[in-house]
Simulated scan of single mutants.
Amino acid sequence: MKPRLYMIIPCYNEEKVLPITSEMFLEELNLLIAKDKISENSRILFVNDGSKDKTWDLIKELSEKDEHFIGICQSRNRGHQNAVLAGMMEAKDVADITISIDCDGQDDIAAMEAMVDRYHEGCEIVYGVRSNRDTDTFFKRFTAQTFYKLLNKLGGEIVYNHADYRLVSARVLKEFANFKEVNLFLRGMIPLVGFKSTSVYYERHERIAGESHYPLSKMLALAFDGITSLSVKPIRLIAGFGLGVSALSFIGIIWAVVATILGRTVAGWSSTVCIVCFMGGIQLICLGVLGEYIGKIYMEVKARPRYIISERTWEKDEKAEKKKCSK
């Protein structure tokens, strides 16, 4: 039996790029159907993440134009990770496999065929991994690679150079639905589910149109979320550093007492200020890291919904069908 595929495509203010990439997604879907690798009932699911432009109107137009296009609209902007989650949870009961991919056309759409092939070979998760970062600036390449290495050293199980381009089976999604975190970092959470997995390598292209929605500030926030969501080692490092500073302070106290007894004490304003500033800075950094973890606990305890769907493209058809039946 051929698997039913749902492409999960988060969209935020993509009115410039959507008319271009939607045709590319449809072409790839039809190609996989023609090769008998997926079911004809496969769909392209756009997730409108509270866009302020005409993105949702375009999605509705596409759904009327071709039955393979469907869409859901979030009640407000919740961020990329929540949009991907909303699409996966919407598809988990109707699809056999899902492939999440960004709308901007940077990820190689043709890699989907290799992902589906790996699924047919028995893999439940297939990660799309960048083969190189030649299109990135030196700064972005350096910071991204440093982040992946740092997070792995801190205990986070993430695939190197993998973002959110991946195939996930319905079996994995149903288990993943039991993960109730409000603070989402999908590329680190999916590996925690387990099951057989592999990687497909591809080259990433320049954005086809529009502007990137991930400036440096958002990338840094995502990186910090990833570290604090997957690892408690920063807290342990703080504890270890505190012990080290305490040991040095104890030695300093002994030295001060001995110097006083020997009568060699000299008033030193500069040394005092340096020590106070150093210790004050360290304490503020440590409090900031602890505060980040406490803030995450606060959000998790509230258990607010991670996404709210305000509209679905197929609901209009269902309402029309109900009216016909009532007549």
Rank of each mutant, 00 (worst) to 15 (best):
A95N: 11
N183A: 06
R141K: 08
F224Y: 15
K92M: 14
P215M: 08
S169A: 04
E206G: 05
L173M: 14
G226K: 03
C123H: 15
E181W: 14
A114K: 08
E175P: 02
A110E: 02
C103V: 04
Y127F: 06
G156I: 01
D96K: 02
S199I: 08
Y127K: 10
P191S: 07
E211F: 12
K218W: 15
R133W: 01
A177S: 10
A110N: 14
S212Q: 00
L230P: 05
A111N: 07
H162L: 11
D104I: 12
M115A: 07
R204I: 07
L151S: 12
I227K: 03
D93H: 05
L230F: 09
A110W: 08
I208N: 03
K180H: 14
R207F: 06
R118M: 11
V168E: 03
I109W: 07
I158K: 00
I190R: 03
T143K: 12
A223Q: 11
V200R: 00
E181F: 15
E113H: 07
F139R: 12
T228W: 03
G210D: 06
S199C: 14
G210I: 06
Y165R: 04
K149Y: 05
D225M: 11
T135G: 00
Y160T: 09
S199E: 09
A110F: 07
C103R: 04
S169M: 02
A221Q: 14
S197C: 00
Y201W: 09
L222R: 15
D102C: 09
K196M: 05
G194N: 05
T135C: 11
N178Y: 11
S199R: 15
T137I: 04
S131Q: 05
Y201G: 00
K180M: 11
T98D: 09
Y214T: 13
L220H: 05
M189N: 12
F179P: 03
A223N: 07
E113D: 12
M112N: 11
L220K: 12
K140M: 12
T137Q: 04
S229I: 08
L167I: 13
T143N: 14
E203D: 15
H213A: 02
L154M: 09
D104L: 06
S229T: 02
L230D: 01
F138R: 09
V232N: 15
R171N: 14
G105W: 02
M115F: 07
K153V: 10
N183T: 15
A144S: 12
K149N: 10
S231K: 07
L220F: 10
Y127L: 10
F138V: 13
E175C: 04
I101D: 04
D102T: 12
M189S: 11
E124I: 02
I158G: 01
N161V: 05
V193E: 00
L151E: 10
D93F: 08
Q106E: 10
G194Q: 03
L173K: 01
L220Q: 08
D117E: 08
E206I: 00
R141D: 14
N178D: 12
E175K: 04
D102K: 10
V193R: 13
S169T: 15
R204E: 14
R166P: 01
E121G: 08
K174M: 03
A114V: 02
T198C: 07
H120K: 10
I101Q: 02
R187T: 13
F139V: 13
I208K: 01
E157S: 08
I190L: 12
R207A: 07
C123K: 08
K174F: 07
L220R: 14
A163Q: 05
K218V: 14
G194D: 06
N178W: 03
